[in-house]
């Protein structure tokens, strides 16, 4: 299980820049590490979510050549927050999963933008929101929901066979 988690976190972080482009639709790629962190945080709690977010984000920063620590911090915060509130949410419902991941992705994007603003990030907010954050958030929402459903189905299948 630990190996799987390590692969999920490390692989998710690095694979985003490599494999993520294959999932691109109309120049919008999903934030796979974010989805992985959210799923893990929901299952394993805030501590694990925070750590997974940090590692995945740091690897993503390193792999994409961005500022080290930006995504590490935002994803750690997201992992922590989801780990805390996850127990109170009925996350098995697709009606919660899709908008939940969309809102979460938007919040992560805003947090990243705010953090980068501290370091004089030049991109205008409106364009960033229209062309990057919102489309990616929508994609994350649907992909995340599909992954949750796939995991639930796999678990049901596993229970039946055992």
């Amino acid at each position: 299980m630990r190996t799987f988690l390590a692969i999920a976190v490390l692989g998710g972080g690095v694979a985003h820049a490599t494999v993520g482009s294959a999932l691109r639709i109309a120049d919008v790629a999903p934030d796979i590490p974010l989805i992985v962190v959210v799923l893990l945080a929901l299952r394993r709690g805030p501590e694990f979510g925070c750590g997974a977010g940090f590692v995945a984000g740091l690897l993503q920063d390193a792999a994409t050549g961005g500022l080290l620590g930006v995504q590490a911090l935002t994803k750690a915060v997201v992992g922590f927050a989801i780990g805390v509130v996850g127990t109170r949410l009925r996350v098995s419902q697709p009606l919660v999963q899709v908008p939940g991941l969309v809102v979460l992705s938007v919040l992560e994007g805003l947090a990243r933008y705010a953090l980068l603003q501290l370091f004089h990030f030049p991109a205008p907010f409106g364009e960033l929101m229209t062309y990057v954050i919102l489309p990616q958030a929508l994609y994350n929402g649907f992909l995340g929901a599909a992954l949750v459903l796939a995991l639930a189905w796999a678990e049901t299948l596993k229970e039946r066979t055992s």
Binding site: L68, V70, F119
Partner: peptide, 14 residues
């Protein structure tokens, strides 16, 4: 505490 440490490390890195 972990979040605080991580935030600190990240900000330091930045």
């Amino acid at each position: 505490g972990l979040l605080g440490v991580i935030a600190g490390v990240c900000l330091l890195l930045l």
